[in-house]
């Protein structure tokens, strides 16, 4: 069923699509994290705003990815912006949930102690609250990375210049060529697993005191 000769001839393409896939995902996770961190800190002590922002990110998460990728085409064309905006938007819910849950879990005694030591609210956030929230924050980075790597394939709808490994799935389907479909699908899953394993190692090293498991309820299903 698999045309191994074709596979052998296309290993160069595979390498560059993996690189593209990784880059598209990394930009989205990086930007998404920065935006989510800023948003989380902004809404942390503003309950109404917080509810509104979390609800909005939940609504975005509900919209199927294909629709979000298509939505920007009339505005920004078949461009990198069109590919990245949906990927970033999908990370917001995951990141905000985890960052806010991590910050919420900081014990009040610790906050009082920091206040008593004369920390300003900014210093307290940077030196006390964020480090304590780190295990959940890293858990969020893992979830967002795996989910984003899955979604990058869908950006193949924007044409041959995008999609990462998804390019092979789209092209393989157009040519009714099963080898090429699998050539995109299997490595894209392997890439997600590899990145997750790497992040677990980072997590162990950075927060050896924390339990490895992300608590139940912090695990939304991957967007599709």
């Amino acid at each position: 069923m698999i045309d191994w000769a074709w596979v052998g001839d296309h290993l160069d393409d595979l390498a560059w699509r993996i690189l593209q896939h990784f880059t598209l995902a990394a930009i989205a996770v990086g930007l998404g994290f920065a935006v989510s961190l800023a948003l989380s800190i902004w809404v942390l002590r503003r309950p109404r705003l917080r509810a509104a922002v979390v609800t909005a990110s939940g609504v975005l998460y509900t919209i199927p990815s294909l629709a979000l990728f298509a939505a920007l085409v009339p505005v920004t064309g078949l461009s990198l912006v069109t590919a990245e905006v949906p990927l970033v938007l999908y990370t917001l819910l995951i990141f905000m949930r985890n960052i806010l849950a991590g910050l919420d879990a900081v014990p009040p005694d610790v906050l009082e102690a920091a206040d008593a030591m004369g920390y300003s609210s900014g210093t307290r956030l940077a030196l006390v609250e964020l480090p304590l929230a780190l295990p959940l924050v890293i858990g969020g980075i893992r979830l967002a990375s795996v989910s984003t790597i899955g979604l990058v394939t869908v950006s193949g709808i924007l044409g041959d210049r995008f999609g990462g490994l998804g390019f092979f799935i789209f092209e393989g389907y157009r040519h009714t060529f099963m080898t090429e479909i699998l050539f995109g699908a299997l490595p894209s899953i392997a890439l997600a697993i590899a990145v997750d394993v790497a992040l677990v190692a980072v997590q162990r090293r950075l927060t050896p005191w924390a339990a490895q498991q992300v608590p139940e309820g912090m695990r939304p299903a991957a967007a599709s």
Binding site: V146, L182, I189
Partner: peptide, 22 residues
Amino acid sequence: ANLWRALPSLALIGIVLPFTSA
């Protein structure tokens, strides 16, 4: 099941396709 949930949908369709079309 929690691992399963992280399966990317497009890639999953791609993996199933060669088998169902056979």
